[in-house]
């Protein structure tokens, strides 16, 4: 009933279908494109460096997860 003709598993969320490669999907996929050229690559140490910080935003997440 979806536009894709391919057979999908009928269970409610058909999650398993996602495991089979592209089963649910479009005939081709855009987005998350693979860069053709190497752009703006970070150095080996830069790409590993710490990014997480306990900002107000992050604190709000923790706060609203508590009782």
């Amino acid at each position: 009933m979806s536009m894709t003709k391919e057979e999908t598993r009928p269970d409610r969320r058909s999650f398993l279908k996602a495991l089979s490669v592209g089963a649910a999907g479009a005939s081709a996929v855009a987005g998350l494109a693979t860069p053709v050229e190497a752009v703006a690559a970070e150095s080996a140490s830069d790409k590993r460096k710490k990014r997480y910080r306990e900002t107000d935003h992050v604190k709000a997440f923790y706060r609203t997860n508590r009782y």
Binding site: R13, F15, A18, A24, V29
Partner: peptide
């Protein structure tokens, strides 16, 4: 958030004893 295309599931919910 990540504009993940149809057919790619970075995250999904698994249910047992559905």
């Amino acid at each position: 958030e990540n504009d993940v295309p149809w057919g790619i599931n970075r995250r999904r919910v698994v249910t047992i004893n559905d």
